[in-house]
Design a protein around this nucleic acid. Structure first.
Lengths: 340, 340
DNA sequence: TTGTATGCGTTATCAA
DNA sequence: TTGATAACGCATACAA
C-alpha cells in the first residue's frame, strides 16, 4: 500500500494525501480526517527510503564506540544507548552503532558521514584533545559530544560539572577532619578524569591542604586498576585517612582492597567514589558515599534532545548543558581517626 | 558529485557508468577502467538512499536489546556488537540498535520490520519459549538468533553447546574425586541457563552422582546474585566440595564469597565457572578453571556471517551453528578434600 | 483548498 | 557493448 494506491482509493491526488498526513495547514480538516482514517485502516506505512531520498535526510544518528583497551566493558555505555534510542524512537530516528579501534575511529566517522549514512553523531568518551571533534567540526557534520574537550566553545555538548563534584567531596572530607586525602583516578587523557582531577586540586587548595603526589595514583579504568592503585597507596609507611576515587569501577577495587586489608571503611579510612557502588557488586552491606551524577539513561535522553536541537538549528548556547553533581552520603566515610 | 554529473564528465550514459561501477559483465573492460578511475578521482560516492530506494533494501540489520532488570550491564553484549559491526561494515551494512523494555519488545520489532527500517534482525538473549522468534517467524522477517529456543529447527541460529560444557565440568570434578557437587545458575527462562542446567543434570547422572536440590541454587544474573547464592549454599550444615557456576558474573560473586569465608579455592572447595573470570576483576592471583567459549567478538562475527547467509538464501542446515566448549584448567579446582 | 508536474539519484528494462 | 526511458515512492514549487 503506497501513497498512490491510497490516494486512488480516496479519489484524491497523492499530493493532498501526503500533505494531509504530514500535517500541512492547507488541507481542509474534513479531508484530513478522511485521509488519516483511510490510512489507518489500510495500514499505510510510508516508504522511508523514498521519503529520505526526497528529503535528503537519513533519519539516523550514528554513534561510534571505541573498542579495545581502556573501555573494558563500560556497562554504563549501554544504558546511555538506552536513553538515546528511547528518545530518538519518539522522533522516528534510528540509532546506528559502529565500533572502531582507536586507530580506525576517524576513518569510521568519515565512512559514515561521507557515505551520508547518518545525519549526525553522538561522540562518547571525549578526550581533552580530541581529533574526532576536530574532524567533525571541520567537515561540518552535526554532532553532540558526551563530555567536553579542552576547548569546548564551538560545539554542542552535554557534561557533568566534574570539577564541582570533586570539590564537594574534598570539602566534605575536610569538614570531617581529614587532612591527608588521597586520590585515585582514570587516565587523564579522558577529559572527565582530567576535570575531576582539576577539581580535586582546586578543592585541596581551597581547603588549605597540601597534595601528596604519592597519594595521587593513576588506575587503569576498571576494578582491578582500582585495587592495585589502592594497594600501592597503602603500601607506603604513612597513608592517607581518606581517598576519593574518580570512577565507580575503580571504586569497587579500592573498597575491596581496603576490606581485604582488614580495615573498616568510615572509621579507619574514608572513601568517596564518583557514582558510588555499581548496583551489581559484591560489596554488600555498604553504602558508599557517592558523588552523584544523573543516570546514564538520563544522560542518553538529554544527549538525544541536544542532537535534535542541533539539527533544528538551535543556538549553541542552549546546546551546552552542564549538570550539577551532589553528594549522596553513605557509610563509607566518617570523622578522621583521632578527630574526636 | 552524482551519477549524472560523473557520466556527463565521461561522455557516457548514467546507465553505463552505473553498470561499470557495479561490476556488470556487459560493459567493456576498457570502459570500466576509465569509469572506475574517474569515479575515484572525482571522489564519487553513490547516494545510498537512492540506491536503497531503487533496490528496495535498507542495507541495515537491527538488534533490539532488552533493557532493565535481568540484563544489568552484560558487558559482553557490547563485544558481540563489536563483532557484528566489524563484519557488517565490510559489506557496507549498518547495524541499527534499539532498546526496549521486555514488555515493548515485540512492538519494537514490529516498528522496525513493518516500517522497513531493516533487512533483518539479530535476536540476542533467547529464551526457551521466545515470542520474538515466534513473531519474526510468522511475519517472515529474516533473522538470526543468538542462542536456540526449545524448538530450534525452523530458523538460523548460533549457539554454544551448553550441555556439553556442563558435562565436561562435571566429568572433570568427578575425576578429581568430587561426589558432592553444587550448581549456581542464572534464571532458567534464559535458554543458555536451561541448557547448561540440563547438561549438569545429564553429567551428574552419567557420573552416577545424585543431585542435592539444596545445592542447586538460582542466582540473579550478576556478581551479587552469585555471592548470595553461595552464601545460601554454604549456610547449610553439609556443603558441597565443588561448585559449577553457569555464568562468569555470578562466578565472581561465588569466588568472592568463598574467599570471604576464609576458604582456599582448589583445596577446601573447587569452583568451575563458565567463561572463567572477567578480565576486569578484583580476584587477583587466581586463575579460575573455566568452561571456555568462543569470545563474544567471535560470536558477533559469526552471527553477522549467518545473517548474510540468510539474506543470500543459504540452506538452513548451514545456518545452524554450534560451537564446542572446552575446559581451560586454572587453579580454582583440585582433588576433593580427603581424596588423597 | 486541491491537483499537476517535476525532482530526489539510483537501478532495471528493453531497444539499438 | 551502450543508451534512452521508465520505475522506486515520496515531497514540493507552482498553477488552478
Amino acid at each position: 500500500m503506497d501513497l498512490k494506491q491510497l490516494s486512488a482509493r480516496l479519489g484524491l491526488s497523492p499530493t493532498t494525501v501526503s500533505r494531509a498526513l504530514n500535517g500541512y495547514s492547507d488541507v481542509s480538516e474534513r479531508t484530513r480526517q478522511r485521509v488519516i482514517e483511510a490510512a489507518r485502516e489500510a495500514g499505510y506505512q510510508p516508504n522511508l527510503m523514498a521519503r529520505r531520498l526526497a528529503l535528503g535526510k537519513t533519519d539516523a544518528i550514528g554513534i561510534v564506540h571505541p573498542t579495545g583497551a581502556g573501555h573494558l566493558g563500560d556497562p554504563r555505555f549501554l544504558e546511555v544507548v538506552d536513553g538515546l534510542t528511547e528518545r530518538f524512537a519518539a522522533e522516528q530516528i534510528d540509532l546506528l552503532i559502529a565500533s572502531a579501534r582507536p586507530a580506525d575511529e576517524i576513518a569510521t566517522y568519515e565512512r559514515l558521514s561521507r557515505g551520508r549514512r547518518v545525519d549526525g553523531f553522538i561522540v562518547p568518551h571525549t578526550r581533552c584533545r580530541d581529533p574526532r571533534i576536530d574532524y567533525l567540526g571541520q567537515c561540518g557534520a552535526p554532532f553532540v559530544a558526551y563530555g567536553r574537550t579542552a576547548d569546548s566553545s564551538g560545539y554542542a555538548w552535554f557534561d557533568f560539572d566534574n570539577e564541582a563534584g570533586s570539590r564537594l567531596a574534598v570539602e566534605r572530607l575536610h569538614r570531617l577532619g581529614h587532612r591527608r586525602i588521597g586520590y585515585v583516578h582514570a587516565p587523564l587523557e579522558l577529559n572527565f578524569a582530567w576535570q575531576r582531577h582539576q577539581g580535586f586540586v582546586a578543592g585541596m587548595e581551597q581547603a588549605g591542604l597540601s597534595i601528596e603526589s604519592r597519594w595521587v595514583v593513576p588506575a587503569g579504568f576498571g576494578r582491578r586498576g582500582g585495587y592495585e592503585a589502592m594497594q600501592t597507596m597503602m603500601a607506603g609507611s604513612d597513608t592517607p585517612t581518606a581517598v576519593i576515587v574518580d570512577n565507580n569501577l575503580s571504586g569497587v577495587g579500592v573498597v575491596r582492597c581496603v576490606l581485604d586489608a582488614g580495615q573498616v571503611l568510615g572509621r579507619d579510612i574514608s572513601v568517596i567514589v564518583y557514582d558510588g557502588t555499581p548496583a551489581d557488586s559484591t560489596v554488600l552491606e555498604l553504602e558508599v558515599t557517592a558523588i552523584e551524577q544523573p543516570t546514564p539513561h538520563g544522560a542518553g535522553v538529554k544527549l538525544a534532545e541536544l542532537m535534535l536541537g542541533v539539527t533544528q538549528g538551535q543556538p549553541l548556547q542552549e546546546l551546552q548543558v552542564l549538570w550539577a553533581p551532589r553528594i549522596a552520603p553513605g557509610n563509607s566515610d566518617g570523622p578522621a581517626p583521632g578527630t574526636r
